[in-house]
Design a protein around this nucleic acid. Structure first.
Lengths: 207, 207, 207, 207
DNA sequence: GATGAATGAGAATTCATTCAT
DNA sequence: AATGAATGAATTCTCATTCAT
C-alpha cells in the first residue's frame, strides 16, 4: 500500500526544497492559521510551484504533520537540555523560560493552531500527546537523577510542564498589561521549587 | 459609520431568533471549529434561513464574536462563585474544578478554537484578555476579603488561574493515559494552597 | 445516509433549471466527451453558475448518470413503439431505423461516450445493460404476440437489436463512402426477416 | 512543416524503446481509458523517463495514434487469415470468433475507447474507417475467390463484419446474464451463412 | 540521448454572501 | 421579515509538458 504518487527526494537540492516547503508551510500555518494558509501561499513563500508540493506531500495536511514532527520537539519544553551541573534548579528554569520566549515565538503560535487542530484531527492529537509525554518522562528521569524523589514525580513533572507553558504564553504575548511579568516568573519558579522539594541526594555529591 | 444592513431586532420573536443563532452557531463553532462550521449548518441547526442570518449579523465572524461575548464569561473560571463561607479553600477549589469539567466540556473545546483565533483575530484576542483579566481581578478581590494577603496577589491569582485551566484540560480529555488524574488534581490544589499561604485574617473572623 | 448537500428542487423554476443542466450537460458530454466537458462549460451553456450545479448534483458524474437515466431510453431502440397493426415487419423496421437516424443523432454520439465509460464505470455499465435488456425483452414480447415463435427468440431478438444498432451507426455517420447505405439497409432488414422466419399465426388473424 | 522536436530513432535500442512506449501506452489507454492514463503511468510501465517520451512523440495523443496504427489491424477482424482450405465457412467463422475472444480481450476495450475518441478526434476516426474498409475489402476479395458471389457482396461483407463484432462484445463481457451466449453465437453464424448463400463455385474446385 | 524534478494552467468543488420572490 | 436559490471567487489538487543537469 505504498504511496506511489509522492516521492522521497534523493538529491540534495530536492531535499532542501522539501524541507523549505515544510519549514515555510508550517510557519505560515502557525502564524496565520491552517485554513488561512493556502497551498499557493506556501508555494510562493517557498519559491516553488504548487505542483511540486504534491510531489512531496499527499496533501496540504501532510505538510502540517511533517512540520509538526520536525519542529514539534522544539515547541515542547526541552527542559533538561538546559540543565547543567552543578545543578541550580532556579537558574536552569530561568534558562528554559528564556529559551522558550526568546527563541521560539513562532512555536507559541504553533501551539495555538495545534491546540485547535487537536480537537478535530486525530493525527495532530496523537503526535502532540506523544511529544508532551516524552518530554515529561525525560524531565522526570533527569529530576530523579538529580536527586529529586517526591511522591508522584511524573504527575508533578507534568504540572510543572504546564506551568511553564502557561507562563511562556503570558510572557510572549504580554497579554495582560496589568500583570507584572517578572513577578509572575518568580512566582512560577518559586512554586516549582516548592513542588519539587529538597533533593534527597545533594547535587554536589553527583558527578 | 452605522451599519445599515444589520438591524437590532425589536420584536420578541426576533430577539429569540437572534439569540438562537448565536447560541447554536457558537456551539457548532466550538465543537467543530470555526472554519468547518458553515453558515448553512448554523441556519439549519437554528431553524432559520441562511438569508436571515445576514439581517442580524454582518458576517459569519460576527456570530462568533457575539457568542464569545455572551458565553465567554462562562468559559473562564467563575471561581469565586463557587466559594462559600465558612471558607474551605481546598473544598472550594475542587468544586470549581468539578464544575469546569462536568458542566462545560463544550467550552473546553471553545478554548482551543478561541486560542487559535486569538492569534489572527484582534477582536477575539481583546475580548478574551478582558475576560481573563476581569476574572483574575474578581478572584483577587475575593481572596483579599478572605484574608489572603501575600505579596503580588494579582500575579499569584493569575498563576493559579492558569494552573486550574491546564488541569481541567488534562482531566477533560484524559490526554495522557499514563498520568494519574487524581494525583494531578491533588498536586494542583496543594500547590495553590501553598502559593496562597495562610490567610492573615482567619476566615472565622469574617462574616 | 441521506445526502444533505444536494436537494430536490420543489419550485417549477428550479425543476426546469435542474432539467436544463441535465439536458445541456448530457448533450455536451455526448458531443465532446465526458472529460472534455467541464462543469464550467455546462454551467455556461445552461445559463447558471457553477455553484448551483452542486446544489442539484453530487458531482459531475451524477449529471452524466442523470442524463443517462433520463435520455437513455431514447438511445436504445424503442422498436415496438413503431410497430403498427396490421403488422408489416419490413415497413416497421424501416420506420424504426428512420426514427433512430433522423431524430437522435445526438444519442448516437452518446452511445460512443457511454460505451467508453462502460469500461471503467460500474454505474454506467449497469444502467445501459438494464436498458438494453429491457428493450430486448419488450421486443421479444411483442414479437411473440405477433406470432413469431422461433427457437431462442430472446437471443435472436438481441442479435437483431445489435444489427439495427450497427446499421444506424453506419447510416448516421456515413463512415464508409464506398459502401452503399441503402443496400446495407436492405440487407439488414432482409436478414432480420430471415432470422425471424414466418409467423406461426399470420398477422392478419390478429386484431 | 517538419517537426524538429521529435526524432526518428536510428539506434536499435532507441527503436525498441519507442516501440515499448507505444505498446505499453496503447495498452494502458485501452484498458483504463485515454484520459485516465497519464504519461507518468506510461513512462513507468515502459521503464523510461517521462522526458524521453517527448523525444519520440509530439504529445500524449501521438502515442495513441501510433498504437492505433500499429495494433489497429489486430483489433479489426482479421477474418480471412483464419480461413483455410478446404473452406468450411462455419468452422472458419468460429475460429475467427474464438480468436477475437480468447486472444484480444484488450482490444475489445480498445474498441470502446476508440469509438469514444472517434467522435471528437478526426485522426482516430480516419484511421479506424480505413482499417475497417480495408478489412471489409480483403474479406470480400477472399469470399469472391471462394466462390461466394451474391449481389452487393461488399455491403453484405460489412454487415457480417458488424455482426461478428457485436457478438464478440457480448461474449467477451457477458453483458446480459439472461442471454445464452452459445445460442447467440449459433444464431450469428447461421445468419451469416444465410446472407452469403451458396458458393457458385464449389470450394473443392479451387486450389 | 536521458532523466525526473519542476512548472503552471486548468479542473472540480465549496461556501460566504446576495437577492429575487 | 423571511426564504433559500443562486452566485462566483477562492481553494485544493492533477498532469501534460518542459528544462536544467
Amino acid at each position: 500500500m505504498e504511496n506511489t504518487k509522492t516521492r522521497e527526494p534523493q538529491q540534495k537540492r530536492s531535499i532542501e526544497k522539501k524541507n523549505k516547503i515544510i519549514e515555510v508551510g508550517f510557519r505560515l500555518m502557525c502564524e496565520n492559521g491552517y485554513q488561512k494558509t493556502t497551498t499557493a501561499d506556501i508555494a510562493k513563500a517557498a519559491g516553488v510551484s504548487t505542483g511540486i508540493i504534491y510531489s512531496y506531500f499527499k496533501d496540504k495536511h501532510a505538510i502540517f504533520i511533517a512540520g509538526l514532527e520536525q519542529f514539534g520537539s522544539k515547541m515542547i519544553i526541552p527542559m533538561y537540555d538546559q540543565f547543567t551541573f552543578p545543578l541550580d534548579v532556579r537558574k536552569s528554569l530561568n534558562i528554559v523560560i528564556d529559551a522558550l520566549i526568546d527563541g521560539h515565538q513562532v512555536f507559541m503560535g504553533a501551539h495555538k493552531e495545534i491546540d485547535s487542530l487537536i480537537m478535530t484531527d486525530e493525527e495532530t492529537a496523537r503526535i502532540m500527546y506523544e511529544f508532551e509525554m516524552r518530554t515529561t518522562k525525560d524531565l522526570e528521569k533527569f529530576l530523579k537523577k538529580a536527586g529529586f524523589a517526591p511522591e508522584n514525580l511524573l504527575e508533578k513533572t507534568h504540572v510543572i510542564y504546564n506551568m511553564i507553558e502557561s507562563l511562556c504564553h503570558e510572557l510572549t504575548y504580554h497579554k495582560h498589561e496589568e500583570l507584572n511579568c517578572e513577578q509572575m516568573r518568580t512566582i512560577v519558579v518559586d512554586t516549582i521549587l516548592t513542588i519539587l522539594g529538597e533533593p534527597s541526594i545533594p547535587y554536589f555529591d553527583q558527578a
